[in-house]
């Protein structure tokens, strides 16, 4: 219990700082930018209250927004991800459901499951984010293309972080 109170706030701060200080300065071919921070939402325990997760997602997005002067943009996309997450978890659930206290990580539920979960989650979040960013549908395929490209980079980052963190998980 105490571990939860320390680990998650700490993770929250680290994800936000890493995103705004390091990843936001990375520019890969034009306007493509990896957004690793949403891994925080993806990693939240499955059995946590849906509404609570939605609230945390809003706060996470808002924190990024404060740093990037994009008020409400990341917040809205994160709230969308927080809303979709329970349904996504339902769709991807194993036949007998999730075991209690199993975290939604590759280490616990396998790489196949995690990759499906992360890909859909990241893709939905990024599409939402990029369409809110341009605030118009007139350049539909242009925006979708950027969302797809960023999704790929974000996924690569997420997989890297997941690989390193599952190594430490095994040792524990």
């Amino acid at each position: 219990m105490i571990k939860t109170f320390i680990t998650y706030p700490l993770q929250f701060i680290l994800f936000v700082l890493f995103q705004v200080l390091i990843l936001n300065n990375i520019q890969l071919g034009g306007t493509v930018n990896p957004y690793l921070y949403i891994l925080f939402i993806l990693w939240l325990p499955i059995e946590w209250n849906k509404a609570f997760v939605l609230g945390i997602s809003f706060l996470l997005g808002l924190s990024i927004d404060v740093f990037t002067d994009t008020m409400g943009m990341h917040a809205s996309a994160c709230v969308f991800l927080g809303f979709i997450r329970p349904y996504l978890l339902n769709v991807l659930a194993p036949r007998d459901g999730y075991e209690l206290n199993v975290p939604p990580t590759a280490g616990a539920l396998g790489w196949v499951w995690f990759l499906q979960y992360a890909t859909i989650g990241v893709l939905l979040h990024h599409s939402f984010l990029f369409f809110v960013e341009v605030f118009r549908f007139s350049e539909f395929f242009d925006t979708l293309g950027r969302a797809l490209a960023s999704t790929i980079f974000s996924l690569i980052m997420i997989i890297l972080v997941q690989v390193f963190s599952s190594n430490t998980e095994d040792r524990r």
């Binding site: 509404a51 939605l54 609230g55 809003f58 997005g61 808002l62 927004d65 404060v66 740093f67 990037t68 002067d69 994009t70 008020m71 409400g72 943009m73 917040a75 809205s76 709230v79 969308f80 927080g82 809303f83 809110v132 605030f135």
Partner: peptide
């Protein structure tokens, strides 16, 4: 709840886009 929070987020977006002035929630 989702619709409510999302509405709040969009309110923030529109406010940021259309009003100049010092708001607390920025860099």
């Amino acid at each position: 709840l989702f619709v409510g929070v999302e509405a709040l987020a969009f309110y923030l977006i529109l406010k940021n886009n259309h009003f100049q002035g010092s708001s607390f929630l920025n860099s």
